[in-house]
Amino acid sequence: MKKIITPILLAAALVACNNTTNNKTETSEKPKTETEATPEEAKESFQEINSDEALIATALMAAPAESREGCTVIGYNMAGEFVTLKEGSNEFICLADDPKKEGFSAACYHKSLEPFMARGRELKIEGKNHNEIFDIREEEVKSGKLKMGDPGSTLHIYYGAKAMYNTETNLVDGAQYRYVVYIPWATSESTGLPESPVEPNHPWIMNPGTHRAHIMITPLKGEDK
């Protein structure tokens, strides 16, 4: 009798063991939720920057996060007029993306740089090219006619190839940051900075010895978040 019962008990134990293993496998699987976005849905969250509100929202992304609420925003509106899109209360001015140009480029800078920036926009409207604008502002800064801004004034640039943004986060599709710190007349010798980056994300000095001498910093994509 024992010889008959023992195999039966062994078979029952094996069945129970198998059921336990199956239950563990099933419960260890990640539950599917209806809220998970598919790659297609993620792409659909990006929309064209096609309103003044969108221009303001994306321009503010160029500013430090803690300062965005108080920034002034200027630039071309959707009607093609250069206007103040948003009045501000702090030390930052944001320049919105130009909707007539390919890609995306917004900037944010210290308000003491506005005379220098405004002069550049004025000369560009007059039809002056990059080299002419550089030479004219160089002479005007040397003569004292044009102010370069406070030493160390910083320009934050937020740019990318696509003028598409996430309506929930205001992040621009594929955009990244670059930083410019103005130090007029500085040189490699006076700062110890190289005149070209040692690595893609390392600081270096551009336009050394001129009114537009500045430290260039371009973080690797993703490192500035």
Rank of each mutant, 00 (worst) to 15 (best):
S51R: 12
S51Q: 14
A37E: 12
K128H: 06
S89T: 15
T21A: 11
I49N: 02
T6Y: 10
L14C: 13
D224A: 14
Y177G: 09
T169K: 03
K111L: 11
P200I: 00
K24T: 09
K225I: 04
L220W: 01
A118Q: 12
E122D: 06
E114D: 14
A79M: 12
I93E: 08
S196T: 04
K86A: 06
S153T: 14
Y159H: 14
P115E: 06
G80F: 08
E223L: 09
P7Y: 00
E102T: 10
M206K: 10
H211M: 10
G160H: 11
E189R: 04
E34I: 10
E122Q: 10
V83P: 06
D150V: 07
I56S: 10
T167S: 15
I215M: 15
E44T: 05
E34M: 13
I8W: 07
T167R: 15
V15N: 14
V73Y: 06
I183R: 01
K86F: 05
T218R: 07
N19A: 14
K124G: 12
M61A: 06
E138C: 01
L123M: 11
L171M: 13
N131M: 10
K145N: 11
G80D: 08
S28K: 13
Q176I: 00
A213K: 04
A13T: 05
L113P: 00
K124F: 09
K128A: 12
P219W: 03
G209Q: 06
T25S: 12
G149L: 03
L10A: 09
S51C: 13
D97M: 09
K124Q: 12
A57P: 03
L14R: 05
A42E: 14
F116K: 03
L55T: 04
K100P: 00
I217F: 15
M148C: 14
